[in-house]
Nucleic acid binder design. Structure first.
Lengths: 223, 223
DNA sequence: GCAATACGATGACGATCGTAATCTAAAAAG
DNA sequence: CTTTTTAGATTACGATCGTCATCGTATTGC
């Protein structure tokens, strides 16, 4: 997943150092741009929007800071794009998972401890709330996409109460996000951090199971 | 609530401008320090730890930035103190509320739209995860205090399964925090933002009611 | 092939960042 | 009363911030 196929020809290029300045194919440039966005998405998740500067970001992608504004109109623009990229990655990973499977992976120590490769909502949701409208719009779209992805795999095949399924998924997502964020706010080896995760995973799965059994009961006419 | 009794003698003082530099009572200094912490707690909640500089912070409190290091060893120190202050405010407000009352106030539009006066966990939890250990320790302590405050008012009077009550409160808190953060990440007038809040409030209250009825059923010996 | 284009490097800009030294005068200590 | 202490203002440090101007060159459009 998220293989990051980007071959580091740029490093080679920069190793030639001094004066061998060479221009780059249109396709290469596009690829470079995508690589910058991917790098930004990772770095922002790790240290927050304000925690990474343009220069450091470009350096991490294998470039100098000068070329930045050939690709993006501002840092805020990149923030929006990197957010969208990260969010769609989360959506892609949720595809084909039923809610219980999603929760099992989402509310886990591995996810909590892997900020840079984890869910953008959990990593940057708190920061996004303070950002301009276009970034929050990306978040809303990402959340909406995640909802439909999770709903499509739900156990409600198809009838009028897809509304109930949507409600269930919204609630489950908020619950899972809250569990991760609360756990991450605690010190690293903290017992409370693990307790929060374990308790919430159990409770969320239980409430999913209960919804399913309610549905079963509703579908059988008697008792 | 949180009346901010701090009388603005400092403004008067600063209006005297130029050369009337006067020293301040030990009690005044202590009061000033507390005021700086309170101002920082509010500003940090509004704009994040990285979103407010020392100079702006001191100016907001009515001082120049020079005196800062007479009160705090570093900005990180103030961040820890401001966090602790904000967290204990949240705990104080939760005192005497049963879980349902807490949820009703917490998972609300008023709370979501009032970042600077709202819960520190919801406002800075995402940022805290990226901060040094001492700040996360403050958060863990604050969360623990909030848990006991909410548990003390729960409907479980006192027996061996206080563990169940604790689990319930942990789960409810993570759920509520997630709802607020998710809603805040959406654009200002967004329907999704309100939908998340409404759905989650309803579901959290429902699950609280169910826990209560389960308890009732368990306490009565037959059926 | 020639001219125009544009990616990326280099360097610099004003502003702001966290931190610190210096100074002043009144409160605290004696 | 004299001395010491210290809260807070002023000023300044070096680093970093986001942004931009300049330039060179290889790619692109003709």
């Amino acid at each position: 997943m998220s293989i990051d196929i980007y071959v580091c020809w740029t490093v080679e290029r920069r190793s030639t150092k001094g004066r061998l300045d060479m221009r780059v194919t249109k396709a290469q440039a596009e690829q470079n741009r995508a690589h910058i966005v991917a790098t930004a998405s990772r770095l922002f998740r790790e240290r927050g929007y304000d925690g990474v500067g343009v220069a450091e970001l470009m350096a991490a992608a294998g470039f100098t800071h000068g070329g930045f504004y050939k690709h993006f109109r501002s840092k805020a623009d990149l923030m929006a794009e990197a957010s969208a990229s990260g969010l769609s990655q989360t959506v892609a990973r949720a595809q084909g998972l039923d809610p219980a499977e999603f929760v099992e992976r989402y509310v886990s120590r591995e996810h909590r401890d892997g900020r840079s490769d984890g869910c953008t909502i959990a990593a940057l949701g708190g920061d996004a709330a303070r950002q301009p409208a276009d970034i929050r719009t990306e978040f809303a779209a990402g959340i909406e996409n995640l909802l439909t992805a999770l709903q499509s795999q739900g156990d409600t095949p198809g009838d009028a109460d897809q509304r109930a399924a949507r409600m269930m998924v919204i609630d489950m997502l908020a619950h899972s996000v809250g569990a991760i964020m609360l756990s991450r706010a605690c010190p690293d080896g903290s017992p409370l951090a693990d307790e929060i995760l374990d308790v919430c995973r159990k409770e969320i799965l239980a409430s999913l199971a209960q919804v399913n059994s309610d549905q079963l009961a509703a579908s059988s006419p008697e008792t």
